[in-house]
Design a protein around this nucleic acid. Structure first.
Lengths: 243, 243
DNA sequence: TCTCGCTTTTGACTTAAGTCAAGGATAGCA
DNA sequence: TGCTATCCTTGACTTAAGTCAAAAGCGAGA
């Protein structure tokens, strides 16, 4: 395993190879052998992104999809009047912009931007289609990934239509807590990887309302907010707001 | 082709076989030959549903998925306090409850009910998994179907978070008009296949608000509402509300 | 360390949509 | 044809959240 990792890290052309950052961690590719992963990294490229750096814009010609290796990516749309709507917040090892591959779209239907300093892996569509044809086992993984996205979206839709902002924020905080690695119950705190305005967009509200909602939860002693760090003081009461 | 159709209709055990109702119209299966379609109908069953008849409930043991052959199906969830949230409105030839197949779920995560008199096709999960394994070509169709659902959900999420009810209703009416077969611009009218309360749920609002919104559009001379029939009087102005 | 610009908070106000309650309309059935 | 249950509409009122404006906080670079 150590061998695999170091070979791959070399392929990713990382100046200071971080062994934990490799395609081996990507569920989409987890079934493949090193030789096949080499093949993938052969036609793909690594991109380092600064905070807030755009990746592609709605309407750009569709050339392929991405995997997040490190950081956080925001996938969003802008309505004609400039209102931003957040479609996904993508975390490490998950793909984004892979859906258009299967829709004969010629252009990206959304925009994407790095929320923090990030590393992504770009996979050109034609090479990937060729790879799929030669390795149809990957279909199942693609389906599994889509199923996960569908579940996430239906849950969000449900939350936005039936809950008020307080419940949606509580949902989000608990989800972050559960998804974030380690520190199960020790230090129950979350560091936002985005502007509060972005979180507001994800929750289907605006920054002022989010600010007031944070304040309300803080006044009630349920959380403590210090800049981008939110500490959960009373998990049970937070959970109770969830619905 | 006439031959194929009649054989299949027989398989569906339709008392008065409607030739247009066959698996041949189902995109998921459109690539298969008659012999394979026979195999599918061999392990599946046809269910005739009365208006408002429940199909399965959230929490029921997951036994398989469905295809709509005729009618309209509502897929929904109920929140603890009884508020209904509509996940999908499924039209003929589209599948529903197929996502859990790929999530190792043991129970249906949603409920489903016929909105009008309908005919559905039930496909048991174990038989279908065996079929998939023997016919991996179907993976691509499944992916395509999921991609379509993902697009629909992101569009709805966007519409619900950035638009007001008037725009959402306009969106819906135009979508219905475009999706409904024939009658392109001749008679521009829509017949709702559901209660107005259900449509309200789909649009992320409530029946009173929907009623007032219908009235507003009617007062402005954009549509005419007579019971479940909505006639579009001024397509351009309706489209302009869309955003 | 200071500044400038961006982010966040706060306040006062508006508004779209939800709630509650009542009255009509309508469809399905006896 | 009439009855009843369900569906839909309307009115009066409340409320959560959005808008607009200003001040405060903060952070990256000079």
């Amino acid at each position: 395993m150590g061998n695999r990792l170091s070979k791959l890290s070399a392929n990713l052309k990382e100046p200071q190879p971080n062994k934990s950052i490799t395609l081996l961690n990507v569920p989409l590719f987890s079934q493949f052998e090193v030789s096949e992963l080499r093949q993938i990294s052969g036609f793909s490229s690594v991109k380092r992104l600064k905070k807030h750096e755009p990746i592609f814009l709605q309407g750009d010609v569709y050339t392929g999809f991405y995997l997040v290796l490190k950081g956080r990516i925001k996938v969003y749309t802008l309505s004609p009047d400039g209102k931003e709507s957040i479609v996904h917040l993508v975390r490490p090892f998950d793909p984004f912009a892979e859906v258009p591959l299967f829709e004969q779209l010629k252009h990206y239907p959304v925009s994407a931007q790095a929320l923090e300093e990030s590393i992504v892996f770009f996979i050109p569509k034609d090479d990937f289609i060729r790879f799929i044809e030669a390795h149809p086992q990957i279909y199942f993984k693609i389906i599994t990934g889509f199923a996960k996205k569908l579940r996430e979206l239906t849950t969000r839709l449900e939350s936005i239509t039936t809950n008020e902002v307080t419940a949606r924020l509580a949902n989000y905080l608990i989800m972050e807590l559960e998804e974030s690695p380690s520190q199960k119950d020790s230090q129950r705190s979350i560091t936002l990887s985005m502007l509060k305005a972005t979180l507001a967009g994800y929750l289907g509200t605006i920054t002022e309302t989010l600010s007031r909602t944070f304040k309300k939860l803080q006044d009630e002693g349920i959380i403590a907010v210090e800049g981008k760090t939110i500490t959960i003081l009373d998990y049970n009461r937070l959970k109770a707001l969830t619905k």
